[in-house]
């Protein structure tokens, strides 16, 4: 069983993902865990390609601050 499948069973996937850029420190933890490489992180700019994002829920976990908020159903 791959990791994502396991995660699906254990934790609900997200219904939406919100970036609170005012909290972001541009550290790259989110990028490091994104399985589909849909986060663009420049020196002081972050954006997520919501078309590619699978709402897997990894990045809100990895974020050391409260800059990514995932909503579950």
């Amino acid at each position: 069983m791959n990791y994502r499948a396991k995660r699906k069973g254990k934790r609900t996937e997200l219904t939406s993902l919100i970036i609170k850029e005012e909290n972001c420190d541009y550290c790259g933890c989110c990028v490091a865990v994104c399985p589909v490489d849909c986060i663009e992180l420049e020196e002081k700019k972050i954006s997520i390609d919501m078309i590619k994002c699978t709402l897997c829920g990894n990045c809100p976990y990895a974020c050391p601050v409260s800059a990514l908020v995932g909503e579950t159903a």
Binding site: D25, C27, G28, C29, A32, A62, C63, P64, V65
Partner: peptide, 8 residues
């Protein structure tokens, strides 16, 4: 100073 960061 304060910073966030990640280590593999």
């Amino acid at each position: 100073a304060c910073v966030a960061g990640g280590v593999p």
